[in-house]
């Protein structure tokens, strides 16, 4: 039975292209988690509850979408969580130093961009493997944030700025709208533009990409810079949500962000994956976290489940890709 299916699929590349894809695992997982969480608590049948649960994760989701692009092109950025904290702290410092709100925001975004650019330059020019380099800048950026803010909470923002997560359009919180729009735009970019296609080509075979005239290094540099910029945006959003900026915010967030990308079926070695998968994985993480909270499992103990999921997601994705093409 299985054999007939696999033979049939191998004779129909288009059909196989649509069926043997790891993001279906994510979709199935999402359905399972929705059903089981509704069993757990009737809250989960309420769309508004799920929407509200999603807001704290939107910042991670935004970055997960950019990280998807980076991993598809064969690199990785682990300094993301530190960049959130650093840009948030810079934002808070700038605002408290008397710069107006718009200028402070610009400074935050600019500093994020700079951090990303720094990562990108070291990766493309010095050829330091990104996975190792960003472990270093992870420490560096978090350290700079700590040097700037010490153990203080930088607050005192105008009330219009605080609590973006409590603004809604209909039942949908504004951050969730931002996330969804961003996912659709980047998803469209990745699937329908020539630049998106080139990311896949770079991740599949950087050598061939270079020989095909694709500007591999420039594109990678751009992606790392973009990652910094989006972390800057996430930093400002987080500050709005929490009303304060601290050096230790988003500690350990790289786990959840990488998990969203991996769970969405993006291939850790590059060349494959898509935004749809990451988008679905975002909701899995949201519902899982909410479900564990409702089940009164301590936030810290949830780490075990997230960590195990990351490892299983990678192994499973690798397995599916190894099956879908010999």
């Amino acid at each position: 039975m299985l054999k007939t299916i696999s033979i049939y699929l191998s004779e129909n590349p288009t059909l196989r292209y649509w069926i043997v894809r790891p993001e279906w695992v994510a979709v199935i997982l999402l359905i399972i988690s929705i059903i089981s969480s509704i069993q757990l608590s009737p809250f989960f049948a309420d769309l508004a509850f799920i929407m509200d649960s999603a807001t704290p994760y939107v910042e991670y989701g935004l970055i997960a979408i950019i990280l998807t692009l980076i991993i598809i092109s064969g690199e990785i950025d682990l300094s993301i969580a530190s960049m959130i904290a650093l840009t948030a702290v810079i934002f808070g410092t700038a605002y408290n130093a008397g710069f107006g709100m718009p200028i402070s925001m610009l400074i935050a975004l600019f500093s994020g961009t700079l951090c990303g650019l720094f990562n990108g330059i070291l990766v493309t020019q010095l050829q330091i493997p990104s996975i190792i380099l960003t472990i270093g800048t992870l420490t560096l950026y978090r350290g700079i944030a700590q040097s700037l803010a010490s153990d203080f909470s930088l607050g005192g923002y105008p009330s219009w700025f605080i609590g973006i997560d409590y603004r809604y359009i209909g039942i949908v919180p504004i951050p969730v709208i931002i996330f969804t729009v961003f996912a659709v735009v980047v998803g469209f970019f990745l699937s329908s533009t020539i630049y998106g296609k080139q990311l896949y080509l770079i991740g599949t075979n950087p050598q061939t990409a270079k020989y095909s005239g694709i500007k591999v290094n420039r594109i990678k540099l751009l992606l790392f810079t973009l990652s910094g910029l989006v972390c800057g945006i996430a930093g400002v959003l987080t500050t709005s949500r929490l009303a304060v900026a601290r050096f230790n915010m988003a500690t350990g967030a790289e786990l959840e962000i990488v998990l969203m990308v991996m769970l969405g079926g993006t291939y850790i070695f590059g060349g494959r994956g898509n935004i749809f998968g990451t988008f679905v994985a975002f909701w899995i993480v949201v519902i899982l976290r909410a479900g564990l909270n409702v089940a009164r499992i301590k936030i810290e103990s949830q780490l075990t489940i997230l960590g195990a999921m990351l490892i299983i997601a990678i192994i499973l994705t690798n397995y599916i890709y190894s099956k879908s093409q010999k």
């Binding site: 786990l255 780490l303 997230l306 960590g307």
Partner: peptide, 23 residues
């Protein structure tokens, strides 16, 4: 066994083990 970069694997176990500490 699974030939995945050690940093990604241990990023997973970093959380996994930390969670076990709390449990």
């Amino acid at each position: 066994r699974f030939n995945v970069h050690s940093i990604i694997v241990t990023l997973g176990t970093l959380s996994l083990y930390r969670g076990l500490v709390f449990i």
